[in-house]
């Protein structure tokens, strides 16, 4: 069953730049998908449209049953509650502890304190940071900060986790640590879309990989086929 469906999506910015050309794409529930491509190929625009940071100029985008293109500004929060987003720069509140950063996502939704506590501890446990709950972001390593960001993104149990270059600022070993956390989350049933430049990771994890070029899908590699030059079996 498709969690995400894009039909003939086009995105043209006010400056006249066309970031996405007539793009159609389906992503199944529970999938783990890499989106790769050179800088300016439209990767970020594509995922921004999924969590409705950007609106498509044309076409249809369905995420978890919500018609994103038709979603009014005042109703965007309904979509965001079903999606977790992780960024390269973590976007943490430096004056709040790791626990408070994760709890923040639930506090703004008005959940009771006990429920927040249970969910935050569970999320921090999943990313392996339960023992650092009281630490402030600036006292944590880059990898740990990213894990706090991931915990915040998944604490509300989203159906979809969007990761925009989550390993972009991290060294190889730390990147692998983050990947194993993401794999763990994916195994629990969350669909993951990850934008990355890191082809080593893409090759190693052998997931479905979408290669973008100039706003179009250049190739859609089936699971396990990326990096295998002799394999022409694209989706």
């Amino acid at each position: 069953m498709d969690l995400i469906a894009l039909q003939n999506v086009r995105k043209q910015y006010k400056t006249g730049v066309v970031a996405i050309h007539d793009l159609s794409l389906n992503i199944e529930k529970g999938d783990f998908v890499f989106v790769i491509g050179s800088t300016g190929c439209g990767k970020s625009t594509l995922i921004k449209m999924l969590y409705r940071e950007e609106k498509p100029t044309k076409g249809k985008i369905i995420v978890g049953g919500i018609d994103v293109a038709k979603l009014r500004n005042s109703k965007v929060y309904k979509l965001r509650r079903k999606i977790g987003v992780v960024f390269q720069d973590y976007k943490l509140l430096n004056k709040s502890t790791a626990y408070e950063n994760v709890a923040f996502a639930l506090e703004v939704l008005g959940l009771p304190k006990d429920e927040i506590h249970d969910k935050v501890i569970k999320a921090l446990e999943l990313v392996g940071l339960k023992n650092k709950a009281k630490q402030y972001p600036l006292n944590l390593s880059g990898g740990e900060q990213q894990r706090v960001a991931i915990a915040r993104a998944i604490v509300n149990g989203p159906k979809l986790l969007i990761c925009d270059e989550p390993t972009g600022n991290l060294d190889e070993n730390t990147s692998l640590e983050i990947m194993s956390v993401l794999e763990e989350i994916n195994k629990l049933g969350t669909t993951i879309i990850m934008v990355t430049h890191d082809t080593t990771i893409v090759k190693k994890y052998k997931k479905r990989t979408i290669l973008l070029d100039s706003g179009r899908i250049l190739k859609d590699y089936k699971k396990g086929t990326y990096g295998n030059e002799s394999n022409k079996n694209t989706k």
Binding site: Y77, L79, R81, K91, A105, L109, N156
Partner: peptide, 15 residues
């Protein structure tokens, strides 16, 4: 930043 995160995690505009 706080506002950006609030929006990301699904806080309503009114909130």
């Amino acid at each position: 930043r706080e506002i950006e995160i609030m929006r990301l995690v699904g806080a309503s505009n009114l909130n």
